[in-house]
Structure formats: structure tokens, C-alpha cells
Amino acid sequence: MRWGMVIDLAKCTGCYACVTACQQEHFIPAGIFWNRLMILETGVYPLLTRQVYPVLCNHCKETICVKVCPAGATQQREDGIVWIDQNKCVGCRYCIVACPYQARSYHPKEKEYLGINQGRTEFGRLGKELYDHQTGVAEKCNYCMERVDHGLVNGLKPGVDRHATPACVNTCPTSARHFGDLDDLHSEVSILIRKHSGAPFHPEFGTDPSTYYIRS
């Protein structure tokens, strides 16, 4: 089993719903983004083209971040999900520098969303209890592994059942994101990759990413 994601660039409208859902799901501190949108404009006015590329951790099979981590804080599970044990991270930031996809962030200190000494919001206070983000450590997308694990325990199928599927996939209004098992040839993600010749970013790095991009 290897969890992976397929993002349909033809369907993505750049609405930022995935970014917001991710922030909300994990109570991500201000200034840090596990999910981002890269917006590329090409051409000359008035003949402009706008392309949107949603980016997140690729959960590579051949992980550079796991290899460079000196403390064993970045780990890869058997199902391919790469995650950070914040209790082990020493904050050397080698993983952030070494990730060729720039998918990681550093959490230096707690910031306020509005920067006007408003303190923690009610949402922020709740987040501190439910999902504590330590300062001085690296952060990145974990494919909503809590949802995936909880769903599997309850007999649900990630990518099919909403309660076992990453928040960004659930929230996408155009269904541009798909989640599933890349090792299962009959899964939706595998079919989409085959049908639309899906490709990851920079396959030449030899990292074998689990996040694929297609244009349907």
C-alpha cells in the first residue's frame, strides 16, 4: 500500500479552498502553509495565460528529508506517508534546505494572524489543545494521516469515504484532487495517472514522489 494524490491541473481554479481547509484541519500556525498554490502567468497582455499549481509535500518513496534528518525525527511509514515527530526534531533545518520541492517550513515562534496583539482566537485556543504545533521544529503536510488512520480503524476506505480522506481532497469544489492507493492498479488515482499520463514534479531527482499532476 502506498498512499498518493493526483491533482488535475485542468480542473483547479485556484480558489484556495484546499489551502484554507488544510490550515483549518491541522490548526496550522500563522505564516506556515502545508498546502500552497503556485500561480504562473505567461504571455504578454492581453494574451495572458494563468496556470495554477497546487503544491504540497510529495511524500516521496525515495525520501531525501528522511535521509538528511540527523535525529530520526522525519520518518516514513510503511504506507509511504512521510511525517515529522516534533518531539524528536532538533530544528537543524537540514530537511528544509535539502527538500528539492521546498515543501517544508520552519516554525520559529508563535505569530498572530492579524499582528495586532489580539492574542489567540477561540479557534487558536482550541487548536493548541487538539493539535499542538511546537516552535523550533520543521513542519509539513502529512496527507492528513490522522484522518486516514482513523478511517482505516473504522473500516473506511481513504480516497472513497470522506472521513478517511485528506481535508484538501474533500473540500476541493471542482474535484481536482484525488487520493488513493498508488500500488492498487484499480484505484482511482492509478487509473487517472495511466489515463492522463500523470507526472510528478522533477522525476529526474529520483525521489519517486507520490503526488502526481494530470491535465484531464
Binding site: P70, A71, K88, C89, V90, G91
Partner: peptide, 13 residues
């Protein structure tokens, strides 16, 4: 280091 007191983890990992 973000957590210098954890640097011993480097030696045991």
C-alpha cells in the same frame, strides 16, 4: 538549533 537540548538525539539515532 531550534531545540539545542535535544541534540543528544543525534547521537542516539
Amino acid at each position: 538549533l531550534g531545540h539545542p537540548l535535544r541534540s543528544w538525539r543525534i547521537l542516539v539515532s
